[in-house]
Design a protein around this nucleic acid. Structure first.
Lengths: 205, 205
DNA sequence: GTCTATACAAAGATAGAC
DNA sequence: GTCTATCTTTGTATAGAC
């Protein structure tokens, strides 16, 4: 492409790839990698199975494409935790953003959960390459806040694990939560209040 | 069986059923229901595939048998939370028992996580029948402690969710934790100290 | 009770017409 | 680019000998 010619991805191609990835997110998040079938994805996308394979090299290609494209969105709330802000506020806001994400993007949460649960066979490189540096950076930030006496002495790594697990629980274990809570007027609001209280208590110097 | 005749389960039958369930726990917890194959289970159990199907009616039969047999063990730590004890001690002990369980029985944790994650299709009745009543009972106990002023006003249901999620995280998301923590001398001890501090802070009146 | 051989179904992928 | 038809592999389950 010497003269900067476009990659020739037509409008219809973009649309179909988007349709496929949207359907795949649905199916993979509900059934896991092995449990998902191309037939289901094709049916949900409203395309034929061979047509799916015209746009992607195969089932695994669809899966890794999905995971890669969603990784940035998934990490956004942590990226937004800023050295400029007030420590307790920053962390409590992070908890809220993460909980909102579990509410708004439960399929994405379950997609990642399925993959990690089975040993992260297809996403380990992304974790090492993208998540780990970000994780280390934010742990260092929290450690600095502690050193400055702006946070009580706590374990930055395990604090982040606790934030992840408590918030994602509402997406990943939604079926169990629903069975145990019964019909609830506003489940998100109660969870939000609970987590704010919990982490507030923990972060008090 | 009028005269109380034994069910005629020979020693070898018991042994083989045990071998199969042990192998199945391994395979199902690593790959999920759909991802697991009878070939793998047979290979790990050291038996032939048809022999597996002599002892169980099929793949699903093995799976539900596993889940049912493990349910009691799984709920033990919560059952042990006693009205007689001191509230804060009882809850902190529960956290520790649950964390120990994630360390000692990670396969069981992942088996349940896989099932819940996919909507609990095969275990919903057990959840409704066994887990729900126990959950309600313990929520009522915590609510009583709060009413007596022995605990701060917190949300019993979400407190239990937070305990489950933070402790099981170390089993269910072990692959991610390992990538992020690197080689660790005693990961369990650090997690244990962190969770004790966190829930202690939260439970302080 | 256990095995070999095999039936049967599901699912990933390809061929080739249009 | 999209389809129908089909190949191939894999996986659950059964038949029947021993």
């Amino acid at each position: 492409m010497p003269d900067g010619a476009p990659k020739k991805t037509s409008r219809i191609q973009k649309r179909n790839r988007r349709l496929i990835l949207e359907a795949a997110l649905d199916v993979f998040s509900r059934h896991g990698y092995r449990g998902a079938t191309l037939d289901q994805i094709a049916a949900e996308a409203g395309l034929s199975k061979p047509n799916i394979l015209y746009y992607f090299d195969g089932k695994e290609d669809i899966h890794v494409t999905l995971l890669s494209r969603l990784m940035d969105t998934w990490l956004d709330p942590l990226v937004a935790m800023s050295p400029q802000g007030e420590p307790v506020t920053e962390i409590l806001s992070y908890v809220q953003r993460k909980l909102n994400m579990a509410r708004d993007l439960p399929r994405e949460s379950r997609l990642f959960a399925n993959e990690i649960l089975q040993g992260a066979p297809r996403i380990a490189p992304e974790l090492t390459g993208h998540l780990k540096p970000l994780f280390d950076e934010k742990c260092a930030l929290i450690a600095e806040w502690i050193a400055q006496g702006r946070l009580p002495p706590l374990d930055p790594q395990h604090l982040i694990f606790s934030i992840w697990s408590t918030t994602q629980h509402y997406a990943d274990f939604e079926s169990q939560v629903r069975i145990l809570m019964g019909p609830e007027e506003d489940p998100h609001a109660r969870a939000s209040a609970h987590l704010r209280r919990m982490f507030e208590a923990m972060l008090r110097v």
